[in-house]
């Protein structure tokens, strides 16, 4: 077990040594500061801090998913493109364990980035709209529940992160199967931009099979107010459909990685 943690340490080392990490952190921090400062100058600090945070989350969270996908798809594909996969696979670890260490550290990276994103949102907007501003506090973020603001945020982020996990898993599969991160990143962009914004429209199409399409269930934030969304679907049903897809994706990824002849 300790030995397996070493594999994860290795993967983390490779992710965090790569120079792109600082670019990613810089972009996230710069975007948050830019939007908050513009907002602050326009309304002179009248808006409540929580309102700014939830709005910026809606506009910017997809960047967290995209960066997590870039890192996750690179973790397998880059080992193939540089040839280091050969050195990695000739150690006394079977391929399933190597792949698992990569998958776990990909999810850890996504979690790390989501936390960094939330922390910078909280910090920057606390400074702008609480310390410097004079916005009245919003009693309730959610109009239909009695949740506290932090509880609401916590649940909202949890649901967003489930979407990230699913997207990272799909990209991880694509990059393992095709040994290229381009397709994986394109797929993630498609999910983030098209699916998460337009799929609600698909829900109005009255075919039974629509209910089982993966994309319909990827955006879970509609359940933030309760376990039944406005379109009548339940959180349990969405999670079950996602769960089935998840198991299929993971199985495919592992089977193909184990069977593949490494010839590059």
């Amino acid at each position: 077990m300790v030995d397996f943690l070493n594999l994860i340490r290795n993967e983390n080392m490779k992710m965090f040594r790569a120079p792109r990490l600082f670019v990613m952190l810089g972009i996230v921090l710069a975007l948050v500061i830019a939007i908050s400062s513009v907002w602050f100058t326009v309304d002179k600090g009248q808006t409540a801090m929580w309102e700014v945070i939830i709005t910026e989350t809606m506009f910017l969270y997809w960047i967290v998913t995209i960066f997590a996908v870039i890192v996750a798809s690179g973790t397998v594909a880059e080992e193939f493109s540089t040839g280091t996969i050969k050195l990695l696979l000739i150690r006394p670890w079977n391929r399933s364990k190597i792949l698992l260490s990569k998958y776990i550290s990909s999810l850890l990276f996504a979690l790390f980035f989501a936390i960094v994103f939330l922390a910078s949102l909280l910090l920057v907007n606390w400074i702008f709209f609480d310390l410097l501003g004079n916005g009245e506090s919003v009693e309730r973020l959610s109009q239909f529940t009695s949740m506290s603001n932090s509880e609401y945020m916590f649940k909202y982020y949890g649901l967003l992160f489930l979407n990230t996990v699913m997207t990272v898993t799909i990209s991880f599969m694509l990059s393992t199967v095709f040994r290229s991160s381009v397709l994986a990143i394109a797929m993630a962009l498609f999910i983030e931009i098209v699916v998460n914004n337009l799929m609600q429209l698909l829900a109005f199409v009255k075919y039974k099979w629509i209910d089982y399409v993966l994309f319909v269930h990827l955006d879970l934030t509609k359940f933030v107010g309760g376990n039944v969304a406005s379109d009548g679907k339940t959180l349990g049903f969405s999670l079950s459909v996602l769960g089935v897809y998840y198991v299929i994706f993971i199985a495919l990824t592992w089977i193909i990685f184990n069977k593949r002849d490494v010839a590059s």
Partner: peptide, 20 residues
């Protein structure tokens, strides 16, 4: 092939960790 963005020593540590 090695991980070019890491030092030679980090590369060796990486592979050393994989074998008890």
């Amino acid at each position: 092939e090695m991980y070019k963005y890491m030092s030679g020593y980090q590369n060796l540590i990486h592979f050393a960790r994989m074998i008890p």
